[in-house]
Design a protein around this nucleic acid. Structure first.
Lengths: 137, 137
DNA sequence: ACAAAACATAGTAGATGACTAAGTTTTAGC
DNA sequence: GCTAAAACTTAGTCATCTACTATGTTTTGT
């Protein structure tokens, strides 16, 4: 049940942007250096996040990224679903896939509950929550 | 965050044993056939569960498996930890591994919370719970 | 003795994860 | 306009892991 580096790096990147309370631009290359992540790899990850409309990018020299929405308005379910591909613990819960064992499967309900449990946790947590928790500790 | 077939098949096998309310023996080959799982693969999985002392095996002709403890006494955390290898969502939470970013890592606390959230869910759920939930639906 | 079961190890093909390489496009500053 | 710095994009690669298969050995009821 391990999350990929994609998700971990992506989260770190977003947190880095969220830390700029003034909404100033942050360059991807700088984050990559600070966090010891290959910048090429991080670019792929950031690209995967673009369709979510949580990033605002300025191209060209002097450009960079900032959050397109307040950190308190970006929950982790959407982010994770995008980066991880699928959050569901088992494939029979996702997409339109139909499992022929569906009717007799005694564990299906359990997987569904676990799925909901994790989703709810992620949905209720925003980037701002993580920042606040960090400060509090 | 997908669970492997190891865990899914292992869970199905245990549920199959739990269904024998009278504690009668169930053969691995039979379960493999019923559930459409390769018996060789299922054997590996079952072997991984042995150190947990939740299985009682009778060898030789006419042999089979049954649960060594009541289904209500087998929680899913121990089972999953065994089959999945590690439940933790990120490696810096598991084992003695030390992450050099530990002190400055703003997401570490979050990962820890998520880890605990899932573990608690699994710990509070037993094989019996799953059977009961199935009957109720 | 034989068959049926549990027990055990090694090997393998395909998928996936985690990147690297090699570009193109946009824009600020000179 | 030229240059440099940044965002943007695609394709390829290497190693690890998943999900098996193959091939046994050992135990035990009949």
């Amino acid at each position: 049940m391990r999350f990929s580096t994609r998700t971990r790096y992506g989260l770190r990147f977003l947190l880095r942007l969220a830390q700029q309370a003034d909404g100033s631009l942050v360059q991807l290359g700088q984050v990559a250096q600070e966090e010891n992540i290959s910048s090429g790899y991080l670019e792929q990850i950031v690209r995967a996040l673009k369709p979510l409309d949580i990033l605002f990018a300025v191209r060209g020299s002097g450009g960079g990224y900032r959050l397109a929405r307040p950190a308190s308005d970006i929950n982790l379910e959407e982010v994770f679903a995008r980066l991880e591909g699928e959050i569901s613990p088992v494939s029979c819960l996702s997409g339109g896939k139909h499992c022929e064992r569906q009717d007799t499967c005694s564990s299906r309900l359990f997987w569904h509950e676990l799925d909901e449990h994790v989703r709810t946790f992620l949905r209720e947590r925003t980037l701002q929550h993580i920042l606040d928790a960090e400060k509090a500790s």
